[in-house]
Amino acid sequence: MATWLVRRVAASLAIVFAVVTFTFLLLHLAPGEPFLPSGDTPIDPAVVARLRHQFGLDQSLPLQYAKYLGALAHGQLGESFALHRPVADALGDAIPNTLVLVGTALVLELLLGLAFGVYQAARARRLPDVALGYATLFLNSVPTFWLGLLLLLVFGEALRWFPVGGVVDPVVHASLPWAGRTADRLWHLALPALTLGCVGAAGTARYERAAMLEVINQDYVRTARAKGLPERRVVLVHALRNALLPLVTLFGLSFPFLLTGAVLVEWVFAWPGMGKLTAEAIFRRDYPVVLAAATSASTMVVLGSLLADVLYAIADPRIRVHGE
């Protein structure tokens, strides 16, 4: 188990390193430059040259790359070109917002996906299953931002049940008591988390339905019935426990999708998270922010899949023994 973990962590570090390198190259290969006059505001070329020198952009690419890696190894993420503040501070504001959004969406995805998948499998090929099958297929195929916009228009603009954006109400939030502030946060979280979670839940439901249908025909499920167990126990204990195993893998796989989806959802709902921060930084060619965002996102993804592997080893006794 220990050697396995060491190998796995080493591989994770290599992946993060590769992402940093690739992002660095892409940024510098892509057309466009920071500090260039955008449209109608003319900027003195001397000022641009001074800024480029100040941020080290006039040095050779390999040297910039080496310097960046050196700083990164010391945990320094540098200064944002555009935000006039340390990158670490900007990320420090954005990451918790994203984690709250992605975490809530993940819980929704797993709970809803599991519930619907199991329910569908129990009613396989009958009306509720078929109806839910179309619904999940639809959710699975619409673009995330489109679903976000739809929910925003219906529940935000038209019905006014939910706010149209942001993390908290900018006017009243500070004056609310603790419970009120929590409610305010949840109220703002509802639509973006639902958007992101529903798309994931649709996929999970389809996956879990298939897993349950496969498991339900296994010999050991028949054995459970032959023992005289109530059908509820047969399905929810003997079958589900086995059908949960693939879901653990799915959890590791879905994390990157949720992060990617979060970029779009944050944009639609003006949610000040990493996705929004990164997207804005890309438009402004704010290299340090983009690099730091890519680094932290890839770190989260590899941590997620590492966690999934560990969970899998815990959930499946057959792997537990081989690992030890």
């Binding site: 296994q218 010999d219 050991y220 028949r222 054995t223 459970a224 019935r225 032959a226 023992k227 005289g228 167990l229 109530p230 003997h238 426990r241 086995n242 195993l245 959930a315 499946d316 006794p317 057959r318």
Partner: peptide
């Protein structure tokens, strides 16, 4: 019927490899 299954009338199957639940 459930009160009979596994209690008054029990069954063992041909495939011992797949008839036991792997996770319990």
């Amino acid at each position: 019927l459930r009160a009979i299954r596994g209690n008054e009338m029990a069954m063992i199957f041909q495939e011992p490899m797949t008839s036991l639940n792997p996770v319990f």
